[in-house]
Structures are given as C-alpha cells and as structure tokens.
Design a binder for these strands. Sequence first.
DNA 1: TAAACTAAGTCAACATGACTGACATAAATA
DNA 2: TATTTATGTCAGTCATGTTGACTTAGTTTA
Lengths: 170, 170
Amino acid sequence: MTDINKQHPGDDEIRQAIELLFFAYRDFVADPDKVLADYESPNGSLGRAHHRVIHFVGRNPGMTVAELLSILQITKQSLARVLRQLIDEGFIEQERGPEDARQRLLYLTAKGEAFETALSNPQRARFRRLFEKAGPEASRSFLALLFELINEDERDRVLSLIGRKPHAAS
Amino acid sequence: MTDINKQHPGDDEIRQAIELLFFAYRDFVADPDKVLADYESPNGSLGRAHHRVIHFVGRNPGMTVAELLSILQITKQSLARVLRQLIDEGFIEQERGPEDARQRLLYLTAKGEAFETALSNPQRARFRRLFEKAGPEASRSFLALLFELINEDERDRVLSLIGRKPHAAS
DNA sequence: TAAACTAAGTCAACATGACTGACATAAATA
DNA sequence: TATTTATGTCAGTCATGTTGACTTAGTTTA
C-alpha cells in the first residue's frame, strides 16, 4: 500500500509507530475541536474536556461521578468545572442514586445527545472510511492491537466499558 | 446498552475504535509523563511539550525552528518558552545555518540524546511487546492503518518525516 | 544600494485544563 | 453514635496553548 510497510517489524517500525500514533491522534482530535470551537455558549467556551465527558456519559448513561473520574483519570476539581458548565447549559442532567442517595447519576439530555452526535460524526466518518478501505480483517486486527496497547491492568475495565472483546474470533 | 443491536455493520467497530484510541493514547503518553515528572530542573519542570520537541529534534538533527513549528502545529511563542528551557538546560543546542545565517539549526546534545532515550524507552517497550505478540503481518497492517488515519493532505509530509533517515534540506 | 521580506526571538495579556490542599455536606455504614 | 464515603466547593498554582505587537539580523529584490 505504502512504503512504510515494506520491512519486518524492528526498531524502525517501533519508531514509526510512535510517530504515527502522535500524528494520527493529533488529526483525530482536531475534528471535534473544530465543532467545539464553533459552539458559542453563554458561560464560556467548550473544549476537549467537555467532549470527553459528553462522550463517556453518552456511552454510559447513569454512571456516577466517581466512575467518570476513574475513566478520565483526572481530579474531581478538574472535572467539577467542566461538569458544572455542561449541567448549567443543559447538556447533562443529574439524578439522585436510587440505592445510594449520595451518588449523582449522570445522563445526557436530548440537547446533549445531539451535541454528542455532532462531535463524533467526523470521527466516525474517519474510521468508516478507514475500515472500508482496509477491509474487515485488517480492521479487526487494528482494534485488537489498539487494545493491546492499553495498560494490562486497565484492559478489563476498558473491555467492560466498550463492550465486546475486540479480538474475539468471528 | 453495549451489545444489543448494531445499527449498521461496522458501527460497533467504529465506536470501539474511537474509545480504544482514546485509552491507548492515554496510556501511551502516561509513560514518558512519569519520566518527565521525575526530572527536576532548575528553571521549572518539563512536560509533554518538551518531550515532543526533544523527540522531533532527535529524529531530525539540524532541523530549523520553522520546520519544527510546522510539525508541532503550534505558534512560535508557544514553542519559544519550551525551546528556551531546553537550550538553557543543555538538552538542545543551536547552530547558525551555513547557507542561511538567519536560521537556527537544532541539535540534541549528548545530555539531550540520553534524555530522549529515557523518555522513549517505555514507549518503545510498549510497541516491542505489542509487535512481538501480534506478529509481523498484523504489525505492518497496524502501521498502515495508523497512517491512513492521518489527514490525507498531511500524509506526504508525515511520510517524508518518518521515512527519512537523516535530515536533508528540501 | 536601499527597500522589502523572512527567520527567529521577545514582551504582554489571556484561556484552558490540568494540579494540590483544605474544607463542607449529606448519606451510608461499622 | 462515630466514621467513612460520594460529591461539591474555594483558593491558588502550573503547563501549555492562544493573539497581537514589536525587534533584530540576514536575505532578496526592485
């Protein structure tokens, strides 16, 4: 396909992988950044931090604040400002935990869902093009390797978050 | 909510890809972050920005400031602070351009090389383990797909960056 | 050669999103 | 009842990005 995959995996591939991951991630997050920059909110603008919160709350409706913190791996003080903005502007709503009333279960509002869609559309389109071009086998292999790139002690938690095992036999 | 109905074939993989890329990148950059946090410098601490500069100067010895800016896609004012620190602490040295004396060609010092190695060691180890486990075919496929993830109009430039051995004037 | 352009550096002000530490409140639990 | 837990908040700091204006030195061009 390109001349980056001519050689066998070695030090050169490893170096290329490090750089390709940097560039791929840079372009991957630049897409929603544009959407965020276009949105003008009354209480200040929205950034990547808001996107991440909207994404994970959308994927895990009813999740607690503590769960969100452990996914994002940031402090609660960092999350607080972002979450407050999203609640104040009606993207996210909180509900008292039915079993444990200390908990605040997080949900996207309809407005939040719509914004999530707008944010993830370009990212979905990017992967859709990629997977169509690469074919199912290479695509599944890609997911499996991305998964193996994650810290070993985090993989179980990630698995339960994203759903079915990415390297499952088909 | 995770493994109920797929809307279209591939949508589930696309969503997983988005989340896996987030987690993989998060853990991937956390490795050098620890090394950076351990280093105590006199003129303030070092962060990811310093790592990126050290990485690309190490990969492209003799590159100009303008070239570095176009790779990092940040403003020169942002780069200035980071670069000044790295020069003041002896990680990077500048040389007058032999053809164009306005240019400042950037090189890692021995100290800079050593630090680059320390920073990239955990990342290299992560990919080495990955590629050994996945095998050559899946590894090459992984690199090719990472490459395809990059913006189309950036690929030529990235290719010339990651593919070339020494830095050559274009 | 003088004027214009270019590469790099600098000063100032500001925004975002992280951080630490301390403390408050309400609810669950030992 | 006493303690622990889940969440929220106040205050300050740091790292890293931004814009805009300006300087200096060296190259190019009219």
